[in-house]
Computed example of a mutant assay.
Amino acid sequence: MVYYFTSNVVSPAAFIYVGKDKFERSVPLRIPNDPRSPSNRTSSTAHVYVRLREGETWEQIPEKLLEDCAQLTKANSIEGNKKDNITIIYTPWANLQKDGSMATGQVSFHNPKLVKKVLVRVRENPIVNRLNKTRVEKFPDLRAEKEEYLKKKRNDERKVRDQQKEKDKLEKREREQLKWQKAHAYDDMFSEENMEASNNQNRDADFLDDFM
């Protein structure tokens, strides 16, 4: 089970996901936000994920959207929700590391340098209440969602490639046409008919008399 939230602090709206309990913390979406700082490692919380929008990187998440994610993370932490000045860390999904020796919901990171922190001083009820109004509970088929996403991505990339090929073909045709025009620019001027018209031998016998 996953809770879906909609954040309208950005346009287009962003989608945030929260696993209902610790057994669903490893939902493989894009950016987890985990409030377990060194002083708060035992806090029970669901991971929060935000789906990156087209062309956006994890380092470019707008501040307002990051604040929404951080507030949801705090609100969904049993211990963290009771405390102020909670440190939340977030990282790209691909940077999560999980092995069989870890407890359920526990994760580590492949590269600690790809981890950022955000401080949540207090719970902002207006933010949490606004997001809770958009909450939808779903039982998603994450594998099917991923396959559908990858299929759409491949189709979009193919369209871009096809458009580029068509553009390249048109530009090549225009270059060839321009090259041909330059190469044959004087064809009409030196045609047999024009050469005869400009030859003095074909002029009237009275031409020189008229000139004199």
Rank of each mutant, 00 (worst) to 15 (best):
E137F: 04
E145M: 13
M189L: 14
N129Q: 10
P35E: 06
F211E: 10
D162I: 11
T104L: 10
S37D: 15
V122T: 14
V27K: 09
E67P: 01
K133N: 09
K83P: 03
D188I: 06
L142F: 09
V160C: 04
V128R: 00
D141F: 01
Q97Y: 15
F190P: 00
A205Q: 12
M1H: 08
F5N: 01
G105M: 02
H184N: 15
H47Q: 02
E24T: 04
D210A: 10
I127S: 00
D209S: 08
M195L: 15
N132H: 06
N95D: 02
G105S: 00
L208T: 01
V122A: 13
G19A: 02
Q201M: 09
I127T: 07
A94F: 14
K64P: 07
E157M: 08
K116A: 06
Q60L: 09
E148N: 10
K182I: 08
V122I: 09
D187R: 09
F5R: 03
A144C: 01
S39W: 12
T45L: 05
V122Y: 12
A70L: 05
L170H: 07
H184P: 03
Q177V: 03
K83R: 12
F109K: 07
L178K: 15
Q164V: 05
E59C: 04
K179S: 09
A197R: 15
V115I: 09
T73H: 01
K165S: 07
D206N: 11
R161N: 08
D84G: 11
F109T: 05
V18L: 04
V128M: 05
D156F: 08
V9I: 11
D209Q: 08
G105R: 02
F211N: 07
N85R: 05
V107L: 08
L150T: 01
A70F: 03
Y186L: 14
K117Y: 11
L66T: 06
S101W: 03
M1E: 07
A75N: 06
L96T: 09
N202F: 15
E148H: 08
Y49R: 07
D209H: 08
W180A: 13
R158G: 02
K98I: 13
A185R: 13
A205G: 10
T87V: 12
Q71A: 01
V18C: 13
P38W: 02
R158N: 14
L52S: 03
D34K: 02
T57E: 12
N200I: 13
K74C: 06
N33R: 12
T91P: 02
P62A: 01
